[in-house]
Design a binder for these strands. Structure first.
Lengths: 219, 219
DNA sequence: ACCTGAACACCGTTCAAGT
DNA sequence: ACCTGAACACCGTTCAAGT
């Protein structure tokens, strides 16, 4: 029997795994996907940009692979309470916590759904818990998605503000807008002007989540 | 009296308004902010890239200005029902509808908040309606934000899927994942495998929104 | 089979000079 | 004051060639 064809030709100098590992390092240390360029990545693995294209189809595929790798490793699976409603809260909060630590991942094509296989562990349990709450499977899926929307939105807004804050110290556009509010037109907001920033800085993810889950399961 | 200093020097060939107008055209016709480059924009106004920098500080400022311009014009202010809870639904749905029509705007730095002054018309009325529902102003602001998170999330996921769909016809990564689910590990999801795409394609924005608002106001 | 170098077709932005 | 041209320091990706 001949050796499989994989054994022929020039031996590889870099591997797919090595590339993804280096990509993770760049993105984690520099906190941002925009910092991950093919050229920089090639440098990191001690090769040329074009060598990478022999291991991944294009940058997009690289990002998907990266997302998967990170999801697999980021599993700090929480203790699950018996009460299904509380379980939903715990699960969603855990997903969100692990994404708060990886703000760069929020921008990834991930946004469609928790797509990587390992992350489906969470989806499974959330949908399951919602069914235990009395929803039909169909409604449970929709409820799961609502929770996912809420979570993605909170993360998007959170990371967008964080990025803006770290970039410039000058008052944000929003702050400027709020100081010039016309109390005749916008009485409620004008009365809050001074406190808006403080109010919106507070972390209310769980409060909103609880309200949402209540609404979804009591409806 | 001498003329104000604005009257001196070479007369301008292009104006800020003209630039923003052209930017809006590009972004609206080509459906995407990434298509808006300084060079392309310069071409559109019949000038050079560098001339733009005389009217806007950098590309970021341009995007903020663009967002404002669009928000101002996109006001199809809805009829408001008397019932405050229903009013919140109508307002949020209207915001979302106008963003669904402008998918490119979802990526904008807008994400922090509805920041442009004209868009605050909505914020004012949502917070107001929530106060009418019996919330303190403070809780009303947090509730408003929860609604905003949910809306941003839905839009983010929606536009991300749309972009992916139009790019490649091959089955999405998610579809592939779902066909290979291990029913031992993920029984609920595996039982849904065939229907997942259909279930998640359905527009359930309003259902989720109603649940959220219920939870926020009944809590 | 795997890697390289040179090149293509782009970016945003700076700088010095023109009118 | 407003605009231009050339240039800098980048991108992702293709292509033809090397080992």
């Amino acid at each position: 029997m001949p050796q499989p064809s994989a054994r022929r030709g020039r031996p590889p100098r870099i591997s797919r795994a090595e590339i993804i590992e280096a990509a993770r390092r760049i993105v984690e240390e520099d906190e941002g996907v925009d910092r991950l360029t093919m050229r920089r990545l090639a440098g990191e693995v001690g090769s040329t940009p074009m060598a990478l294209y022999h291991h991944v189809r294009d940058k997009e595929e690289l990002l998907v692979l990266l997302m998967d790798a990170v999801a697999e490793e980021a599993q700090r699976r929480p203790e699950l309470p018996a009460d299904p409603r509380e379980r939903v809260i715990v699960l969603a909060t855990a997903i969100r916590a692990s994404l708060v630590e990886r703000p760069w991942a929020v921008e990834l094509p991930a946004a469609d759904d928790l797509m990587s296989v390992s992350a489906l562990w969470y989806s499974e349990r959330i949908v399951g818990a919602l069914v235990e709450c009395g929803l039909t499977t169909e409604r449970a899926v929709h409820a799961y998605r609502a929770i996912w929307y809420y979570t993605v939105g909170e993360l998007t807004v959170r990371t967008a503000s964080a990025r803006r804050r770290e970039r410039d110290d000058r008052p944000t556009y929003r702050d400027r807008v709020f100081t010039e509010l016309d109390p005749g037109e916008l009485p409620t907001l004008a009365s809050l002007a001074g406190r808006w920033t403080e109010l919106t800085a507070r972390d209310t993810y769980q409060d909103g989540l609880r309200a949402l889950v209540d609404g979804l399961t009591r409806g």
